[in-house]
Amino acid sequence: MLTDAGLNKVKEIVARYPEGKQKSALIPVLHLAQDELGWLSADTMDYVAALLQLEPVEVYEVATFYSMFHLKPVGRYLFEVCQTGPCMVSGADDIIGYIQQRLGINVGETTPDGLFTLKTVECLGACGYAPMMQLGKHYREHLTRERVDEIIEECRQKAGLLN
C-alpha cells in the first residue's frame, strides 16, 4: 500500500528505537500513511499493524486518540482554523464565519466538489500571529477576509492545474 520510498522511510524510522520497540514507530508511520493515502481507512490501519507486527487494535486505539488522524476522507484542501482564546480575541470567529459563507459549508463539512473541508481546531502555537489556520504542512497566519479570498483562489487554481 505504501510506496517504496514510504517503505524505506518506515525502515529508517524503526531503526531509531531499541530492538523490539518498533511500536514506537506507530505514530510516525501513521503520519506517513496518511500523507500518502489522504486518510486512514480500516484497511490502511490493518496494513500498518502488519508492517509493525502489532495487533490491529493497537493501531485503532492510537489512531482514534490523536486529532490529526483522519478516519474519514477529507477534502483536498483542509482548512483547520484555530478557535481557542488568543485567536478568538484576535477575530477568529469572524474568519470562521466568513469561510463558511464563502464555501457554503458549515464547520465539519466538505464542499460538494470535494475540494474543501472546514474544521475548527484548538490552539496551534501561532497565537501571536492570529487569526490563523493550518493548510497542509504549513500555517497561514494573520488571516483577514482578503487573505481568505486569496487562499481559496490559490487552492482552486492549484486544483485546476492538477486536474
Binding site: R16, S24, P28, L30, S67, M68, F69, V121, E122
Partner: peptide, 11 residues
C-alpha cells in the same frame, strides 16, 4: 544520536 518524533495532535 538525536531523533525527531512527531506527535499527532494531543495537548
Amino acid at each position: 544520536e538525536i531523533y525527531v518524533q512527531r506527535g499527532a495532535g494531543a495537548y
